[in-house]
Amino acid sequence: MADDGAPVTSYKEGGFADEGAGDLPIKVHICAPSTLPEGFVFEAEVGDQNAKKTISVEVPEGGVVEGQVFLIDLPADFAVGEPQVNIPTGRWKDGTFDVLKAGPCHPSLWCSMCFTQVAMGQVLQRLRFNWLGSSAPEAATKNTFKVVLALCTCYAIFTVSLEMAEASTNYYNVPAWIPVLKFIGGILFTVYSIYALMKLRENVRAKYSIPEESCIGMEDLCCSMWCSCCVVAQIARHTGEYETYQGSYCSETGMAAHTPSIV
Protein backbone atom coordinates (compact mmCIF):
# COMPACT_ATOMS: atom_id res chain seq x y z
CA MET A 1 0.00 0.00 0.00
CA ALA A 2 1.47 3.32 -1.02
CA ASP A 3 2.29 6.00 1.56
CA ASP A 4 0.55 8.75 -0.39
CA GLY A 5 -1.16 10.28 2.62
CA ALA A 6 -4.71 9.54 1.39
CA PRO A 7 -7.24 8.29 3.94
CA VAL A 8 -7.87 4.58 3.83
CA THR A 9 -11.25 2.88 3.69
CA SER A 10 -12.67 2.73 7.19
CA TYR A 11 -13.69 -0.49 8.87
CA LYS A 12 -16.10 -1.04 11.72
CA GLU A 13 -15.45 -3.17 14.78
CA GLY A 14 -18.99 -3.76 15.94
CA GLY A 15 -18.90 -0.76 18.23
CA PHE A 16 -15.50 -1.51 19.76
CA ALA A 17 -13.80 1.42 18.02
CA ASP A 18 -15.95 4.02 19.76
CA GLU A 19 -17.22 2.40 22.94
CA GLY A 20 -15.15 3.21 25.99
CA ALA A 21 -12.76 5.46 24.08
CA GLY A 22 -13.33 8.31 26.51
CA ASP A 23 -14.23 6.35 29.63
CA LEU A 24 -10.69 5.77 30.86
CA PRO A 25 -7.63 7.98 30.53
CA ILE A 26 -4.68 7.01 28.38
CA LYS A 27 -1.60 6.46 30.49
CA VAL A 28 1.92 7.59 29.72
CA HIS A 29 5.26 6.20 30.88
CA ILE A 30 7.48 8.58 32.83
CA CYS A 31 11.14 7.96 33.63
CA ALA A 32 12.09 9.33 37.06
CA PRO A 33 14.91 11.91 36.71
CA SER A 34 16.15 11.18 40.22
CA THR A 35 15.10 9.52 43.47
CA LEU A 36 11.99 11.39 44.61
CA PRO A 37 9.55 11.09 47.53
CA GLU A 38 5.85 10.38 47.25
CA GLY A 39 3.82 13.47 46.30
CA PHE A 40 6.75 15.41 44.83
CA VAL A 41 5.74 17.30 41.67
CA PHE A 42 8.11 17.80 38.75
CA GLU A 43 7.93 18.72 35.07
CA ALA A 44 8.42 16.00 32.44
CA GLU A 45 8.48 16.02 28.65
CA VAL A 46 6.30 13.53 26.78
CA GLY A 47 6.02 12.80 23.09
CA ASP A 48 8.67 12.12 20.47
CA GLN A 49 11.63 14.35 19.67
CA ASN A 50 9.63 16.23 17.02
CA ALA A 51 6.58 17.01 19.15
CA LYS A 52 7.41 17.18 22.84
CA LYS A 53 5.14 18.77 25.43
CA THR A 54 5.68 19.40 29.12
CA ILE A 55 3.31 18.11 31.80
CA SER A 56 3.33 18.19 35.59
CA VAL A 57 3.92 14.81 37.20
CA GLU A 58 3.17 13.87 40.80
CA VAL A 59 5.30 11.06 42.20
CA PRO A 60 3.06 8.08 43.06
CA GLU A 61 2.69 6.35 46.41
CA GLY A 62 5.94 4.89 47.70
CA GLY A 63 8.16 7.30 45.80
CA VAL A 64 10.46 6.45 42.89
CA VAL A 65 14.16 5.86 42.36
CA GLU A 66 16.27 7.40 39.62
CA GLY A 67 15.62 5.75 36.24
CA GLN A 68 12.44 4.00 37.37
CA VAL A 69 9.66 4.00 34.76
CA PHE A 70 6.11 4.43 36.04
CA LEU A 71 2.68 5.11 34.57
CA ILE A 72 0.52 8.21 35.11
CA ASP A 73 -2.76 9.35 33.58
CA LEU A 74 -2.23 11.64 30.60
CA PRO A 75 -3.95 15.01 31.22
CA ALA A 76 -7.33 15.21 29.49
CA ASP A 77 -6.37 18.45 27.72
CA PHE A 78 -3.10 17.11 26.35
CA ALA A 79 -2.60 17.94 22.66
CA VAL A 80 -6.03 19.58 22.37
CA GLY A 81 -6.58 20.73 18.79
CA GLU A 82 -3.61 18.79 17.48
CA PRO A 83 -3.89 15.72 15.20
CA GLN A 84 -3.46 12.52 17.13
CA VAL A 85 -4.05 8.82 16.68
CA ASN A 86 -7.35 7.85 18.31
CA ILE A 87 -6.66 4.76 20.43
CA PRO A 88 -9.52 3.21 22.44
CA THR A 89 -9.09 2.61 26.17
CA GLY A 90 -10.67 0.04 28.44
CA ARG A 91 -10.96 -2.73 25.83
CA TRP A 92 -9.32 -4.01 22.70
CA LYS A 93 -10.44 -2.34 19.50
CA ASP A 94 -11.29 -5.75 18.04
CA GLY A 95 -10.64 -9.42 18.69
CA THR A 96 -7.38 -11.34 18.50
CA PHE A 97 -8.54 -13.30 15.47
CA ASP A 98 -10.16 -10.38 13.62
CA VAL A 99 -7.13 -10.27 11.35
CA LEU A 100 -9.10 -9.08 8.30
CA LYS A 101 -10.62 -6.03 10.01
CA ALA A 102 -8.21 -3.63 8.33
CA GLY A 103 -8.64 -5.38 4.97
CA PRO A 104 -7.21 -8.52 3.33
CA CYS A 105 -4.29 -6.64 1.76
CA HIS A 106 -3.34 -4.41 4.68
CA PRO A 107 0.38 -4.17 5.61
CA SER A 108 -0.36 -4.90 9.28
CA LEU A 109 -1.88 -8.25 8.30
CA TRP A 110 0.80 -9.47 5.91
CA CYS A 111 3.76 -8.21 7.94
CA SER A 112 2.36 -9.89 11.05
CA MET A 113 1.66 -13.16 9.29
CA CYS A 114 4.86 -13.42 7.22
CA PHE A 115 7.40 -11.47 9.30
CA THR A 116 5.97 -11.54 12.82
CA GLN A 117 9.04 -10.30 14.68
CA VAL A 118 9.65 -7.49 12.17
CA ALA A 119 6.03 -6.35 12.54
CA MET A 120 6.49 -6.52 16.32
CA GLY A 121 9.52 -4.26 15.94
CA GLN A 122 7.40 -1.75 14.02
CA VAL A 123 4.81 -1.63 16.81
CA LEU A 124 7.53 -1.35 19.46
CA GLN A 125 9.00 1.63 17.61
CA ARG A 126 5.52 3.16 17.16
CA LEU A 127 4.96 3.06 20.92
CA ARG A 128 8.56 3.98 21.73
CA PHE A 129 9.24 0.79 23.68
CA ASN A 130 12.64 -0.91 23.72
CA TRP A 131 13.51 -4.16 21.95
CA LEU A 132 12.42 -6.15 24.99
CA GLY A 133 8.89 -4.75 24.88
CA SER A 134 9.13 -2.31 27.79
CA SER A 135 9.17 1.44 28.21
CA ALA A 136 12.64 2.95 28.64
CA PRO A 137 14.46 6.30 28.40
CA GLU A 138 14.38 7.92 24.95
CA ALA A 139 18.00 7.01 24.18
CA ALA A 140 17.15 3.32 24.56
CA THR A 141 14.09 3.40 22.30
CA LYS A 142 14.96 5.56 19.30
CA ASN A 143 16.51 2.62 17.40
CA THR A 144 14.20 -0.16 18.58
CA PHE A 145 13.07 -1.23 15.12
CA LYS A 146 16.65 -1.36 13.84
CA VAL A 147 17.69 -3.54 16.78
CA VAL A 148 14.81 -5.99 16.22
CA LEU A 149 15.46 -6.06 12.46
CA ALA A 150 19.16 -6.74 13.10
CA LEU A 151 18.28 -9.63 15.45
CA CYS A 152 15.94 -11.14 12.85
CA THR A 153 18.52 -10.72 10.09
CA CYS A 154 21.30 -12.27 12.16
CA TYR A 155 19.11 -15.23 13.07
CA ALA A 156 18.16 -15.75 9.41
CA ILE A 157 21.81 -15.66 8.33
CA PHE A 158 22.76 -17.98 11.19
CA THR A 159 20.07 -20.50 10.22
CA VAL A 160 20.79 -20.40 6.49
CA SER A 161 24.53 -20.80 7.10
CA LEU A 162 23.96 -23.91 9.19
CA GLU A 163 21.56 -25.31 6.59
CA MET A 164 24.19 -24.79 3.88
CA ALA A 165 26.88 -26.40 6.02
CA GLU A 166 24.57 -29.34 6.67
CA ALA A 167 23.71 -29.70 2.96
CA SER A 168 27.37 -29.73 1.99
CA THR A 169 28.04 -32.87 4.03
CA ASN A 170 26.94 -36.46 3.64
CA TYR A 171 23.55 -37.08 5.27
CA TYR A 172 25.00 -39.78 7.52
CA ASN A 173 28.08 -37.76 8.48
CA VAL A 174 26.60 -34.45 9.57
CA PRO A 175 28.82 -32.98 12.32
CA ALA A 176 27.06 -33.13 15.68
CA TRP A 177 27.65 -29.43 16.33
CA ILE A 178 25.38 -28.35 13.44
CA PRO A 179 22.03 -29.65 14.83
CA VAL A 180 23.09 -28.59 18.33
CA LEU A 181 23.69 -25.00 17.19
CA LYS A 182 20.44 -25.00 15.20
CA PHE A 183 18.53 -26.16 18.27
CA ILE A 184 20.16 -23.63 20.62
CA GLY A 185 19.70 -20.76 18.15
CA GLY A 186 16.07 -21.66 17.57
CA ILE A 187 15.34 -21.87 21.29
CA LEU A 188 17.02 -18.52 22.04
CA PHE A 189 15.22 -16.69 19.22
CA THR A 190 11.88 -18.24 20.17
CA VAL A 191 12.29 -17.31 23.84
CA TYR A 192 13.19 -13.74 22.88
CA SER A 193 10.22 -13.45 20.51
CA ILE A 194 7.73 -14.73 23.09
CA TYR A 195 9.14 -12.63 25.93
CA ALA A 196 9.26 -9.37 23.95
CA LEU A 197 5.72 -9.86 22.61
CA MET A 198 4.44 -10.77 26.07
CA LYS A 199 5.91 -7.58 27.55
CA LEU A 200 4.63 -5.51 24.61
CA ARG A 201 1.08 -6.79 25.11
CA GLU A 202 1.33 -6.37 28.88
CA ASN A 203 2.49 -2.76 28.55
CA VAL A 204 -0.13 -1.91 25.92
CA ARG A 205 -2.83 -3.25 28.25
CA ALA A 206 -1.44 -1.16 31.11
CA LYS A 207 -1.16 1.97 28.97
CA TYR A 208 -4.73 1.73 27.67
CA SER A 209 -6.33 0.20 30.80
CA ILE A 210 -7.32 -3.05 29.09
CA PRO A 211 -8.16 -5.82 31.59
CA GLU A 212 -7.34 -9.48 31.10
CA GLU A 213 -10.31 -11.52 29.87
CA SER A 214 -9.04 -15.07 30.38
CA CYS A 215 -6.09 -16.97 31.87
CA ILE A 216 -5.83 -14.26 34.53
CA GLY A 217 -2.18 -13.54 35.22
CA MET A 218 -1.09 -15.61 32.22
CA GLU A 219 -3.08 -14.13 29.32
CA ASP A 220 -0.20 -12.17 27.79
CA LEU A 221 2.12 -15.19 27.94
CA CYS A 222 -0.45 -17.62 26.54
CA CYS A 223 -1.43 -15.33 23.67
CA SER A 224 2.20 -14.63 22.82
CA MET A 225 3.07 -18.32 22.78
CA TRP A 226 0.15 -19.69 20.78
CA CYS A 227 -1.13 -16.79 18.64
CA SER A 228 1.90 -14.54 18.13
CA CYS A 229 1.13 -13.36 14.59
CA CYS A 230 -2.51 -12.63 15.48
CA VAL A 231 -1.44 -10.78 18.65
CA VAL A 232 0.98 -8.55 16.74
CA ALA A 233 -1.71 -7.77 14.15
CA GLN A 234 -4.23 -6.98 16.91
CA ILE A 235 -1.87 -4.57 18.68
CA ALA A 236 -1.01 -2.94 15.35
CA ARG A 237 -4.71 -2.37 14.61
CA HIS A 238 -5.37 -1.11 18.13
CA THR A 239 -2.62 1.52 17.97
CA GLY A 240 -2.81 2.40 14.27
CA GLU A 241 -6.24 3.95 13.61
CA TYR A 242 -6.12 2.52 10.10
CA GLU A 243 -9.55 4.01 9.39
CA THR A 244 -7.77 7.37 9.03
CA TYR A 245 -4.06 6.69 8.58
CA GLN A 246 -2.41 4.33 6.15
CA GLY A 247 -0.24 1.43 7.13
CA SER A 248 3.13 0.84 5.52
CA TYR A 249 5.20 -2.23 4.76
CA CYS A 250 8.49 -0.36 4.70
CA SER A 251 8.58 2.08 7.60
CA GLU A 252 10.00 1.74 11.09
CA THR A 253 6.58 2.18 12.69
CA GLY A 254 4.42 0.38 10.14
CA MET A 255 2.64 3.67 9.49
CA ALA A 256 2.78 6.28 6.73
CA ALA A 257 5.16 9.18 7.25
CA HIS A 258 2.40 11.76 7.87
CA THR A 259 0.87 9.84 10.79
CA PRO A 260 0.97 11.70 14.15
CA SER A 261 3.17 10.16 16.81
CA ILE A 262 1.69 8.29 19.76
CA VAL A 263 2.20 9.81 23.19
Rank of each mutant, 00 (worst) to 15 (best):
V46N: 04
V232P: 07
P83Q: 01
R126I: 00
F189I: 04
S168L: 09
Y171D: 14
A156V: 01
G81H: 02
G67D: 08
L151V: 06
Y249P: 02
M255H: 10
I157D: 11
E243I: 05
K53H: 10
I30F: 08
V41M: 00
A165Y: 00
D48I: 00
E19A: 13
E243Q: 10
S193H: 14
T253F: 08
N130H: 03
G121E: 13
Y11H: 09
Q246I: 11
E66P: 03
T259N: 13
Q49V: 15
W226R: 09
T259K: 12
T239M: 03
G15K: 10
W226Q: 10
S224N: 05
V99E: 11
Q49L: 12
A167R: 05
L149P: 02
A167C: 02
T159Y: 01
F40D: 13
C31P: 00
K101H: 09
T89E: 06
G20P: 13
V80Y: 15
E202T: 13
L181W: 04
E38A: 13
S108L: 09
V231L: 15
T54C: 03
A32Y: 03
L74I: 06
C215G: 05
L71H: 07
E38M: 02
R91Y: 11
E163H: 03
L162Y: 15
I87T: 15
V28N: 00
W226K: 13
N50M: 13
